[in-house]
């Protein structure tokens, strides 16, 4: 009897939590690309994003791993152009990655090391994916993901669910929030339950909203 009561209470708590979490009811994952007017808005956004020759900014990455009792926080800056993606980590260690011509190089303590995709596929995949994400090509995204898009007045949300079973084994979904032509926040939920959140900030003025 006690057990049943406890289960009912748990269920009520869960429902209350569900209803109270803002944004859940207006989830981007309820808006597949191609429904409503989101196609036009997305197309405007991709055009704007692709118009940018170079994007630079700062990032804060927080990883929540189930086996850790505290999150891993990384801070640094990045710079992205069509041919080159640089990811400079400043803390907790100074380390940078350079992704150019499909080659990933790790630079630490002044030494360069080429990262083989077979040795660290997840790391390599991150840079390959983020290069295409910052270039935001609808065609490219739809090749690898089911794409969801929810345009707002000032901001927009993009949801991605992997199509490839291999990628789906590692990544459950990506939730990207942007403002104007900039990506502001990325939340990556892994199939294991671990998640990574990234906040991006840009020093130069905000380009016009789509």
């Amino acid at each position: 009897m006690k057990l049943r009561m406890r289960r009912v209470l748990q269920l009520i708590t869960l429902l209350l939590t569900w209803c109270c979490v803002p944004g859940v009811r207006a989830d981007v994952f309820d808006h597949p690309l191609g429904t409503g007017n989101n196609v036009t808005a997305f197309s405007t956004l991709t055009t704007e994003v692709q118009r940018q020759e170079r994007v630079t900014g700062a990032f804060t990455q927080t990883k929540y791993l189930q086996i850790l009792d505290r999150p891993l926080v990384t801070r640094g800056s990045f710079s992205l152009s069509r041919a080159n993606f640089e990811w400079r980590i400043e803390s907790p260690f100074a380390l940078s990655y350079q992704f150019a011509g499909q080659q990933l190089t790790r630079i630490a303590d002044g030494a360069q090391q080429i990262v083989q995709p077979s040795a660290e596929p997840a790391l390599y995949g991150f840079f390959s994916f983020f290069t295409s994400l910052f270039n935001l090509s609808q065609e490219q995204l739809e090749n690898a993901f089911y794409v969801f898009f929810l345009p707002g007045t000032d901001t927009w949300e993009l949801g991605l669910i992997p199509i490839q079973p291999q990628l789906a084994k590692a990544v459950q979904r990506l939730h990207i929030t942007g403002s104007g032509s900039r990506i502001v926040h990325v939340k990556l939920t892994e199939a294991s339950g671990d998640r990574t959140e990234m906040e991006f900030s840009y020093p130069d003025p905000q380009p016009p909203a789509p």
């Binding site: 990883k63 189930q66 083989q116 040795a119 997840a122 790391l123 590692a170």
Partner: peptide, 30 residues
């Protein structure tokens, strides 16, 4: 601590010091 990729938790348990990754890299260098 600086790995921006996914499956860091998995790697920490499977290959904590990254030695197995290097072993795989030398087997099949792309």
């Amino acid at each position: 601590l600086t790995n921006p990729g996914v499956a860091v938790g998995d790697r920490l348990q499977r290959d904590p010091l990254g030695t197995a990754g290097e072993f795989l890299g030398q087997i099949n260098p792309s």
